[in-house]
Design a binder for these strands. Structure first.
Lengths: 339, 339
DNA sequence: CCGAAATTTCAAACCGGTATGAATCTTTCC
DNA sequence: GGAAAGATTCATACCGGTTTGAAATTTCGG
């Protein structure tokens, strides 16, 4: 059932039907009711492609799924994406995903732009002077960045205060008396990794301590990497008495490694992790319950969706940018170092 | 830059350009080269909406993201979805996701069908006599089901042999000498849950043992649920000496609970888990390394994408259906019960 | 009761591609 | 040399909506 058929059925013109269903004011109330009933009766819904072509609005936002390589988000992607999808759905915007098959991320974006496949895109995991930003700014194509960069162009972004999170975590451990603190962080190159590292390093130097480069680990956020890094760190001497871990997934491996060393978390080794808040892996189910810096990645997705909708509504993009604070939640995986 | 402009630029008709770019045989090779060069030079890509409208093919498959409630897949969804997306991308098909906001999943499908928003859909997590199947079969709308049902209609599905997986796991534990075996499974109602439970129950009764209903736990696949269930089970008397756990996420909680009880996995309590194979949470990083029934959910997604493409190419859907075997991989979390 | 204004409806153009059948240009062959 | 066959190209009709500007109808004031 298409518009023309429905029009014939009702003895009205396509125009009137279209307006009736789209809530235009210039249509008789009685007619509108009649049209709506008929539409429901015949199960009519406007053809998406046709409407898109006519309006020039696609009603979809695109996101490129990080491939196997950069799996920073693999564990948290669901949460993030479903936050995004939820926020976009509220504005009747679909979420189109494209996997990164052979590494040509820029090519995907270029195609999306020139073929008008999406109205806007969402970028994640920026690196320093991320080339994607320039592309979209130059093409004047709407987008929001999850994270932040040092690119000197006007655009919209949302980031959490990674630097401050690590400053808080490091300070807290120092206050407990720890001197040997290691961090198990994400892959080098990403700004979030560097922001966190800066928070850690500057807090140490601010207290007159010299950061040790072998106490800084960069790896993927997997249980395996967490396990491996921890095993290695604990075999050093002097060994770290406290660890700051960049993700909950790594932390599962960290806990296992500490235990397999015959030690106990919160006694021989203190642990603070950054928690993106997953429904399926909670800091309070760890034994002992885990001290975290917490920030919900789902809420970030939701907020980014709202920002995108604002931008599509014509709001000024750069002025929407925000940096969210992160809170340190002290639980039982942290304690003064044992002497 | 659109087709008409490019045509004027080249002094050719729209038809010729369209055919040149789409690889039709009746266009002069020299012309084709010229067109392709111009298209590249001007960055021309056909407008997606227009092409969709003209061809009647959308080039997108839809999937409804399970909401907060049914989070069976939350941890594995990324893997599954990126497998899907990868398989579909190979056939230039986009993946459109819609979150389940207020529970009207059927309404989303109905709208997709009548508005031709997608060419096909992917269904997951079926329940008994799942109403979605009938909808799509009746509307003759292409789809593939991940899982299986007892609906007596012809359609395409892919499932893993859950029943056999649990039969293998149960048998193995019985062979080791365990008599008190509990299972920590997914939410009741889903066929995968019931298939697994059947494999477990029938194996027990086949060996002359009476299944205990209080040794069968149904809950969400989260560390929290795993932790809670295990704590409760271990406080019973007689307590189970072995656990079969439905997901890796739950298993993280299970391990924690066993440890917080002062016990050791693979000594006081044996554990077998079903592993969907996540890059970020591996059975071999658990301490002790975890015995599993293994089946990659990413590969399942990939295969389902291929099935969908075949169906869109006109292949007979029902004949594509497959049930994948599951292999038991014995590691160190299982041992004879201690007497 | 008539003309003007307001309300409601309509025919046709348009969005930007693809597909059809005809038109034009080449080549082949008797 | 000219007709037939083959190779290219083209004008035009779609696809199914939205939008514009005009037409038809109703309402209202004097």
């Amino acid at each position: 059932m298409n518009l023309k058929e429905l029009a014939r059925e009702l003895g009205l013109s396509k125009t009137t039907i279209s307006r009736a269903l789209n809530g235009f004011p210039e249509v008789n109330e009685e007619t509108r009711v009649r049209v709506e009933q008929a539409a429901r009766k015949f199960g009519y819904a406007p053809n998406t492609s046709a409407r898109r072509l006519a309006t020039g609005r696609v009603g979809a936002a695109g996101i490129v799924l990080p491939g196997h390589l950069s799996d920073r988000y693999s564990a948290q992607t669901v949460e993030y994406v479903s936050g995004l999808a939820e926020g976009l759905a509220a504005a009747k915007i679909d979420l189109l995903m494209s996997p990164l098959l052979n590494g040509d991320e820029m090519a995907i974006y270029r195609r999306w732009i020139s073929s008008k496949s999406v109205d806007a895109v969402i970028l994640t995991d920026p690196v320093h002077s991320d080339p994607r930003i320039r592309l979209f700014v130059e093409k004047k194509f709407p987008f929001v960045l999850h994270g932040s960069t040092d690119v000197d162009l006007p655009y919209a972004w949302l980031d959490i205060d990674n630097e401050d999170a690590y400053r808080q975590a490091t300070s807290y451990l120092l206050d407990l008396g720890h001197k040997e603190i290691a961090i198990i962080e994400g892959l080098a190159g990403f700004t979030f990794t560097e922001d966190r590292q800066r928070g850690y390093v500057e807090t140490l130097t601010g207290r007159g301590l010299e950061p040790r480069s072998d106490f800084i680990v960069h790896d993927r956020f997997t249980t395996e990497a967490g396990f491996r890094a921890t095993s290695r760190l604990l075999s050093m001497s002097p060994r770290p008495t406290a660890l700051i871990v960049g993700s909950m997934m790594s932390t599962v491996g960290v806990y296992q490694a500490i235990r397999s060393n015959g030690w106990e978390v919160g006694r021989e080794v203190s642990v603070i992790a950054h928690d993106d808040v997953f429904p399926y892996l909670s800091a309070t189910d760890m034994v002992p319950v885990l001290t975290t810096t917490r920030s919900s990645v789902r809420l970030a997705g939701l907020k980014i969706a709202e920002m995108l909708v604002s931008i599509l509504d014509g709001k000024d993009a750069p002025s929407l940018s925000v940096k969210w604070p992160v809170e340190l939640i002290v639980r039982q995986s942290t304690a003064p170092p044992r002497t």
